[in-house]
């Protein structure tokens, strides 16, 4: 690919601003991940954990590491695995209470207050992209106290209990069994950021500029250009789930 005239992040911001001018139902968010550029730093995973304040056991964007070949002819490959935001999502029709659905922008979202925690969607997802929040906390009695330091058990506890803003709703983590504890959780393309004109946390944090985000309905957007490339693939296309996450290989 030729050198971009400007940083892809700047271009994606411009694309994003343009998309936000449209009606929600007229835009279609997609993500493109260039596997040749991914160095396996896991910064996207951590950024996602920090942005959404994910508790232990909940992950939206793990980076799968694959080792190929036999020593000494070995190569490693890194495959970030967010929710594929399928156009035909197998997780949606199985929900008995309609707590998960594709919103008007095509992103599969969760209604935590509706979800009963049956975990049917976890088993239905062919990408294992959903996890359940069992209510674990990073801060517990086993964490050592660090008196006099900026960080320590108490400060970390305050941070962990402070609200996150998934879906634009402030939810404090009280330690009790309140939603989203007991619910299925998943990547939502950081819609709370996107609607404020910010790119998803994983996209801005990627040190290799390997993650791209934008509106595929905009022919001038970067992602529209990228998905047309012959080396753009989607995972498990044979299932017909039509993922909106593309990989450049």
């Amino acid at each position: 690919m030729a050198l971009e005239p400007k940083d892809v992040l700047v271009r994606m911001y411009d694309d994003l601003q343009r998309a936000l001018q449209k009606k929600p139902e007229e835009r279609r968010w997609v993500m493109v991940i260039d596997l040749r550029k991914c160095v396996g730093c896991h910064a996207c995973t951590i950024a996602c954990v920090a942005e959404n304040k994910l508790p232990p056991g909940v992950v939206y964007r793990p980076v799968v590491e694959q080792e190929r070949g036999k020593y000494p002819n070995v190569t490693r490959m890194f495959i970030p695995r967010p929710c594929m935001q399928c156009d035909e999502p197998p997780c949606v029709p199985v929900c008995p209470v309609n707590a998960t659905y594709a919103d008007e922008e095509g992103v599969v979202v969760m209604n935590y207050e509706r979800c009963i925690g049956c975990r049917y969607c976890l088993n239905a997802c062919p990408y294992s992209a959903r996890t359940t929040d069992f209510g674990y906390m990073y801060v517990n009695a086993r964490l050592p106290m660090a008196e006099g330091l900026i960080l320590g058990r108490e400060e970390a506890d305050d941070y962990e209990r402070a609200a996150n803003y998934e879906y634009g709703i402030a939810r404090e983590r009280s330690g009790r069994l309140e939603s989203p504890v007991g619910n299925a959780r998943k990547c939502h393309f950081c819609l709370h950021r996107v609607h404020e004109g910010e790119l998803p946390a994983c996209t801005t944090t990627c040190i290799g500029r390997a993650t791209y985000f934008g509106d595929i309905n905009d022919p001038d957007s970067l992602v529209s250009e990228l998905v047309k490339l012959p080396n753009a693939i989607r995972l498990r296309e044979e299932l017909g789930t039509k993922p909106k996450v593309y990989y450049l290989v």
Binding site: V94, P96, G117
Partner: peptide, 26 residues
């Protein structure tokens, strides 16, 4: 008791999604 939110079992009765076999089962 297997549900993450056992006291929301009534959601299936009030907001059933009929494409879900779990809703049919309950």
């Amino acid at each position: 008791l297997d549900l993450g939110h056992p006291f929301r079992f009534w959601h299936v009765l009030v907001w059933p999604q009929w494409s879900s076999l779990l809703a049919w089962m309950i």
